[in-house]
């Protein structure tokens, strides 16, 4: 830990430290060597968020590497949260990439298991899964705090890292989800972003369990929000995306509007309402807005939810 008590000193960490309700966005890099797409998405998110997740071969589909896209995002004004899955890298690559990313100025890292390789565009590839996300968190914490590699060897210059993890309050077994978060906190996670929330009552129940364990005092919790672009998307997620719980009334609320712009408007409105609702939940320290391939909607939703302008730290 550095002199100021901060682990990495990133904007994300400092925003939490200052007690602000923190907003993060998400940028999915393109399936091509296109700098501009990343730059545009980063610019769109820079002013309405405090940091931006850069996904790592999201849904097991090959895209610009999260390290490179994170660097591009930083060049374009958005502080990156580099995502790192256990699916595509063994522990050597995970450590090498974090050293490289850190040397390039990427300080926030989100440790994920990763969607199974069979969902993506190379289903015949070998999934790595050398270590799991709990051990990934531990490994990065040890690199940062103990200046050691996973093998125990020492390094002269440790990476400065603000370590995140994900948790899915809607995954099963439900009661184990808080314990799994606890395991990740013990491993060294500083912040957690949840899977996107549609079933607010169930999320609140999960938060009750989190508070009962006192976990909200040990980790910064960001509630995940995905604005719904249309009834089709809502139905698709309800049916086909594992671990996502979309209540029927949400599908109906969106479907009640006309297709196209009216449904999109309703989706944004719903997103903003949910953010306001979730911000009131004790122990929720911020919101993570994942507008999948709909980044331009984020500023509007943030505005409607009363999150703008973002506080500037000196």
């Amino acid at each position: 830990m550095s002199d100021n008590g901060l682990k990495a000193g990133s904007n994300l960490e400092r925003m939490f430290a200052a007690g602000h309700f923190v907003v993060t966005g998400e940028c999915g890099p393109p399936k091509s060597a296109d700098y501009d797409i990343v730059a545009e998405k980063a610019k769109a998110l820079a002013s309405c968020t405090d940091a931006v997740n850069i996904t790592d071969n999201q849904t097991a589909v090959v895209r610009i590497a999260s390290m490179a896209a994170g660097y591009i995002a930083a060049q374009n004004g958005a502080e990156p949260i580099m995502q790192m899955t256990c699916r595509d890298r063994n522990r050597l690559a995970m450590q090498a990439d974090i050293l490289g990313a850190n040397a390039l100025g990427v300080y926030n890292i989100l440790c994920l298991t990763g969607d199974h390789i069979s969902f993506g565009n190379h289903p015949t590839a070998k999934g790595v899964h050398d270590i799991d996300s709990v051990n990934l968190i531990r490994m990065y914490k040890d690199m940062r705090d103990a200046k050691i590699f996973q093998c125990g060897e020492e390094m002269p210059v440790a990476p400065k890292l603000y370590i995140g993890c994900a948790e899915n309050p809607f995954g099963d077994p439900f009661e184990f989800r808080t314990l799994r978060l606890k395991k990740k906190i013990e491993a060294g996670a500083d912040f957690v972003q949840t899977q996107c929330i549609f079933n607010v009552p169930k999320f609140k129940k999960w938060m009750e369990m989190v508070r009962a364990e006192g976990l909200h005092q040990e980790i910064k919790i960001m509630a995940g929000i995905t604005p719904i672009k249309g009834a089709g998307m809502a139905r698709y997620m309800q049916k086909f995306v594992p671990g996502i719980d979309v209540p029927q009334e949400i599908v109906e609320r969106i479907a009640a509007k006309e297709k196209g712009a009216p449904q999109q408007e309703e989706g944004k409105k719903l997103g903003a309402e949910m953010i306001k609702d979730l911000a009131e939940v004790e122990g929720v320290h911020g919101v993570h807005i994942m507008a999948v391939e709909w980044e331009p909607a984020v500023p509007e939703i943030a505005e409607m939810a009363g999150l703008l302008p973002r506080p500037k730290l000196s």
């Binding site: 069979s118 799991d132 099963d172």
Partner: peptide
């Protein structure tokens, strides 16, 4: 399906693995 050693991933649902489509 992911050789996890420390508990289920986020895709576990209704007793089934996320790989079950």
């Amino acid at each position: 399906s992911k050789s996890l050693l420390n508990g289920p991933c986020g895709g576990s649902h209704d007793g089934l693995c996320e790989v079950t489509g």
